[in-house]
Amino acid sequence: MQYILSYIIAAWRQRPEVHRNRAVRIPRWPVACLTLLGLVSVPAPFTQGGPAAGPVDGQEILVFAAASTGTALQEVANAYAAVGGGRVRFSLAATSALARQIESGAPADLFLSANTAWMDRIDEAELLAAGSRTLLFRNRLVLVAPSDTDTGPVAVDISLDLEAMLVDGRLAVADPVSVPAGIYARQALESLGMWDRLQARVAPASDVRHATLLVRRHEAPLGIVYWTDARDTADIRVLGTFSPELHDPIAYWVAQLADAPAPAAASAFLAFLQSDAARAIFSRHGFAPPLDADTR
């Protein structure tokens, strides 16, 4: 027994490190060996009524999630813990950045995407657990300004003169090339016939949260962001709402990754994300239930 334990500890000490710019999966067979030896206990998974038999309780999972879901997700994780669920960590960023990390092999348990195309890409690469993909909710685009602006509510249609409203400032949006919020904003402006005139005046941000902050800090007089980010950000005023007909559906998908480090715990939290308790939290933060059209 002492020889076996020494061998396992030595192997564990030789595990790969996690580097700043890339994540390296740590071999987990030493933990499995310790479990078989009775030296590590593996608790039970979460079910709607509380812990059930299986190796979930106490396991931490990592969720790669669109930046716009951060505030609501943290509340959901707190509610999950309150009913006996395990620990949940979030890596929040633009959906495009997270998808590329997954493609590069970064370890995560769940992926919550703010864009159908990026989830399709991960699905087509066979990186999702079969049957786990679920449509959670939807969002909408709004035009925002600092709360102390003199500009009042506006109708967001072809009569809107955004160039005049910007004066000599820039329009804050998430990166319109790859970040979902920016892609939707570009599509809306293209539908209104404004993109060609405004493209050079766009201030691209790494994600929608940063675009919102540019407006909040008066670094941009106007921005196009999600409704949920606008309502959760102080010192921001919503001037108008973009019709959903102007852009692709803002649909949020979640799925378990095929190579999830903690698959049982991931499945438990995925189920909780679809519970009535989680839906109520998402609704309070401004997310709306999905429509059939959101799957197009």
Rank of each mutant, 00 (worst) to 15 (best):
G84T: 03
Y252Q: 08
W253R: 12
A277T: 15
I102Y: 00
L273M: 12
P107C: 12
T149D: 08
A203L: 15
A125T: 01
V167W: 06
W29S: 09
T69F: 12
L136Q: 10
D248N: 08
Q59P: 02
D235K: 09
G105V: 01
V40T: 06
L246K: 07
E163N: 05
Q256K: 07
P43R: 01
P146V: 00
G193E: 04
A277M: 02
Q274L: 08
L98T: 12
A114C: 10
R284A: 04
G131V: 09
A262F: 00
T295N: 10
A293I: 13
A114K: 04
Y252M: 04
R170E: 14
G84D: 13
V24G: 05
G105E: 00
P261V: 10
A172L: 15
R133W: 07
D57T: 11
I250D: 01
D161N: 12
V142P: 02
A67W: 01
L143Q: 06
Y252L: 15
I102C: 02
V56E: 14
A155C: 10
M194C: 06
F282L: 03
L73P: 15
V31S: 04
L198I: 01
R89I: 00
S206Q: 14
P249Y: 09
L127A: 09
V56C: 13
R197C: 04
A164P: 00
G152K: 09
E219Q: 13
A81E: 04
R170N: 04
P16I: 01
A234S: 09
S104C: 02
G105T: 05
L112W: 11
R28F: 05
A265N: 08
F90E: 03
F242L: 04
A97K: 05
S267N: 07
Y184E: 08
V88A: 02
G54L: 11
R121Q: 12
P261T: 08
Q74K: 09
R140W: 08
V177P: 06
G193V: 00
G85S: 12
L112H: 11
R20G: 14
D207A: 11
G182V: 01
D168A: 09
H285F: 10
G131L: 07
A181E: 03
A114E: 06
A108Q: 04
G193C: 06
L291D: 08
P204V: 06
D109R: 00
E124K: 13
A266H: 01
G85P: 03
A66K: 03
G84L: 04
F64W: 03
A145C: 08
R15F: 15
I250Y: 05
M119W: 13
R15A: 15
V31P: 00
L162R: 12
T241P: 01
A117D: 15
V179L: 03
P51F: 00
L62W: 08
I236H: 05
E17M: 10
L73V: 02
A260K: 03
L128C: 07
A106L: 06
A258F: 00
D175N: 14
E163S: 11
A79S: 13
S267K: 07
R22W: 15
E124M: 04
M1V: 06
A211D: 00
T151R: 14
V238P: 05
I4G: 05
V202T: 11
D175E: 07
D168Y: 05
G50A: 10
L37T: 09
